[in-house]
Amino acid sequence: MAAIPFRIPRPRPGRLVLPLLVLALVAVSIVRFGGYAAARPGYAVPHDGQLEAALGVRFTQAAVVGDGGLVELRYLVLDTQKASAFQNDTKHPPRLRNERSGKLAWRAALMKQGHELRPGQSYYLLYLNNGGAVRRGDTIEITSGQRRLAHVPVR
């Protein structure tokens, strides 16, 4: 098999102009016309395999809702039995601590959504956002029993 010859390119600043222009066009188009969908970067909640294995759920969103009065914590069910126990565990509620200010959102509603939670489906908890403890753009730490999940972005 013959080696395919290739050139080692010399640095040529001009080569960058075109891609940069294309990028710029894409960028300004997104900003100008993209609306809410494309203008925001991706949102991701950190994963913790141990926490997920223990609770049977994966937290997928923390969001300020209710005109700032409530915090919604959404989770995906990985394990039906553990998740149902998590949902019914009135002794060890998850608590939300604002990593910026240290304030807590702790008054949650049970939000019982069935006797048995379906794997792969998302459910939610709502918290009273005491005195604006959590604001959009903050990061929070979710504590459930001995388990902690840090740096969860709030949107």
């Binding site: 009135t90 509620p93 998850p94 702790w106 949650a108 509603a109």
Partner: peptide, 28 residues
């Protein structure tokens, strides 16, 4: 029953505009 946990939104304080009533230990 309501929490999760022993807390609930309103039981410690059912008054509109009220300040919090009894709080569980350790809660700021």
């Amino acid at each position: 029953i309501v929490g999760p946990g022993p807390e609930t939104w309103f039981a410690e304080n059912p008054y509109l505009g009220g300040t919090p009533g009894e709080l569980p230990p350790g809660v700021v």
